[in-house]
Design a protein around this nucleic acid. Structure first.
Lengths: 168, 168
DNA sequence: ATAAACTTTCAAAAAGTTTTGAAAGTTGAA
DNA sequence: TTCAACTTTCAAAACTTTTTGAAAGTTTAT
């Protein structure tokens, strides 16, 4: 396999994987493109490389900035905006974990907390089953939340810090 | 909030969350329904409770069985099939992790392995960046794969087993 | 102030995904 | 074997998400 073909395959694979994880395919493709590109690219170049429209490219680049995965780069004397991706895979994983925690885990914990407050007849099997499931899920989610929080601040903790190094 | 409303909210929340993680919304809703229902339900009852069609109910129940999240129950003297969910949250998480590993991580590792083989000019910045990203992602994915494997067999390992207990 | 260079917006279109429901298939009892 | 009970299939319809591209907006140099 030659480099250009391999690049394309990488971009496609990343895009496909992302959509299986509820992340917009184009967003992942643009990210993949910037990941394997040494220099920063303009909106125009991204449009060109991936054959997508200006609107799509612009929105996607903005979203990626919102996720903290890419950054704008301004070149002196030029009006154009250039974009480049942080190439450190561990930073990327941290950033994604951080964002999803904020966007999904936090709202989930809120709802589960409310549902845990629902009162009912302790002898009603329906209530008992409902309550147990909600309580269990809530417990696990809170643990996941705490663990994520610790891991995002990982290097500080000798314990998680050393586990974390096993993954590098 | 009363129990019926709370049940509905649980089902909806679970469904919404699932779709943010690339899992079919109805599948998660049916799973949520069975999670908070003490007895096993028939296809008919699932259709009724969630106002979905027979075809959808049937396919979704089959998918859930494929994911190892629910089981069929045959009642003696009856032709109808009843379905119930494993209520142990940790089993559910394990099952989901196991399936996604098989469906996504394994194919990803295959592609990354191929892409890592691509040869090129070590002085070409394009090749260097491509190769570094692919290698780094591959390394991290392999680690994740190994870690998952260990955690899925967790209780056996004193090390991961004790970390694992912190989440229970 | 004007114009060129560039970015953003958003309604409509396209693409992708999920759901429906009627028909076909299967199974077991009589 | 036939029938009723039940399950499965799948093409078409409904729904959701993503993409397009032209128009509007912004910024900077002259």
């Amino acid at each position: 396999m030659q480099l250009p073909e391999a690049k394309q395959k990488f971009i496609d694979t990343w895009g496909k994987l992302a959509s299986e994880w509820g992340i917009n395919r184009t967003m992942a493709q643009v990210h993949a493109l910037l990941l394997i590109t040494p220099e920063a690219l303009t909106t125009e170049q991204v449009m060109e490389e991936l054959s997508i429209s200006r609107g799509n490219a612009n929105m996607t680049l903005r979203d990626l900035i919102g996720w903290g995965l890419i950054e704008k780069q301004l070149k002196p004397g030029e009006r154009k905006e250039y974009f480049f991706a942080d190439k450190d895979i561990w930073n990327i994983a941290r950033q994604v974990a951080k964002e999803r925690r904020k966007r999904e885990l936090e709202p989930l914990l809120k709802v589960l907390g409310e549902l845990e407050q629902v009162k009912g007849d302790k002898n009603d099997p329906d209530f008992k089953t409902f309550n147990k499931s909600v309580t269990d899920i809530n417990k696990m989610s809170k643990n996941a939340d705490r663990a994520l929080d610790t891991m995002l601040k990982a290097e500080e903790s000798w314990f998680w810090g050393s586990i974390f190094k096993m993954f590098k």
